[in-house]
């Protein structure tokens, strides 16, 4: 009985499926096939002839390495720091920008704050290394002004992770606020008018109108970002790394890059990719369903 009703519904909604078709076709060809081909993680690649099945060999090689534990730990620490300290910043920026009157100053703030996003990490690393130079870098010049001793942040094991956090913040705070700003623009202006008539202050309007209206966007982005938890920013770390801080910022991706990609070991790299993906999937689906149950909000 149910089968027939499903068929019926499909026939009735054929236009929906037609609209879905281009997207699905794209996903199958360009994503599902490569993902199915991640079976390479269980094989040795052969240029000529069939790949050889080797079972868990590459996973064992990955997990059994003593360095794996350390890079995993670094990845988790750096990702957690980024979530705690970076994720809220664009929300804050959008709230602040929203308080600016429409006009040249607002345009200036918006335009300038998006700029760093256009630069690659190689360039940003150059900027930060200059900025943090212990002799004449901007930060130490300021420290010197307050009669604080000069600090070499880039080679300091205690500070380098914070350099990662701040440089990422510098790069993306403005850019990532765009999404929230777009969401804020959808809020019905009459709500603010009503609040003002009731005598609500700027901060109260933020707290009781803007923020609640942003919540579903916040939840969606938060959960989606968890999917990249195991990534922690390859380009950034790669460009800001130096010998002194290897043990504190060597992350899974930089490690796999050295062991796998540089040596042409695609199977090994794929195994690592599979591991990262599974964690990401579990994190996203886990938080999504949990959040759905607790707050009624989720990714969809």
């Amino acid at each position: 009985m149910r089968k027939i009703s499903s068929l019926k519904r499909i026939r009735k909604d054929w236009i929906l499926y037609l609209m879905l078709l281009p997207g699905m076709l794209y996903f199958v060809i360009f994503h599902i096939i490569p993902i199915v081909n991640m079976k390479l993680a269980f094989q040795d690649y052969r240029i000529i002839g069939e790949n050889v099945w080797v079972g868990m060999k590459h996973f064992e090689q990955l997990f059994s390495s003593p360095a794996f534990k350390d890079v995993l730990m670094n990845t988790v620490i750096i990702s957690t720091m980024k979530i705690i300290f970076i994720f809220p910043i664009p929300i804050l920026v959008s709230l602040l920008v929203n308080e600016l009157r429409f006009g040249p100053y607002r345009k200036y703030v918006q335009s300038v704050s998006y700029l760093p996003h256009f630069l690659s990490w190689v360039v940003i690393a150059g900027i930060w290394i200059t900025l943090l130079n212990p002799v004449n870098g901007g930060v130490n010049v300021i420290r010197d002004f307050f009669q604080l001793p000069s600090l070499d942040y880039m080679t300091s094991k205690e500070h380098i992770r914070w350099v990662l956090v701040y440089s990422e913040m510098w790069r993306s705070a403005g850019w990532d606020s765009i999404l929230y700003l777009a969401a804020i623009l959808k809020i019905n202006p009459s709500l603010y008018e009503a609040a003002r008539i009731d005598g609500a202050s700027t901060l109260q309007q933020m707290r009781y109108i803007t923020l609640p209206a942003l919540m579903s966007t916040v939840v969606t982005l938060f959960i989606l970002n968890l999917g990249f938890f195991m990534s922690a920013g390859f380009d950034q770390v790669f460009n800001l790394m130096n010998d002194s801080v290897l043990s504190v910022i060597d992350i899974l991706d930089t490690y796999v890059y050295r062991i796998g990609i540089l040596n042409g070991q695609y199977s090994y790299a794929t195994a690592a990719g599979l591991f990262k993906g599974v964690i990401g999937l579990v994190l996203i689906l886990g938080t999504h369903f949990l959040s759905k149950r607790l707050t009624g909000k989720g990714v969809w």
Binding site: M38, G227, W300
Partner: peptide, 30 residues
């Protein structure tokens, strides 16, 4: 639009598969 504003048979599966697509990065060679 289809995924957000309509109900259709198999939607949930499609959404989960999409999440999987987002988090799995196949290797360059594939």
């Amino acid at each position: 639009y289809v995924l957000a504003r309509t109900e259709f048979v198999g939607k949930r599966i499609v959404l989960v598969v999409l999440i999987a697509i987002m988090v799995f990065e196949p290797s360059m060679i594939t």
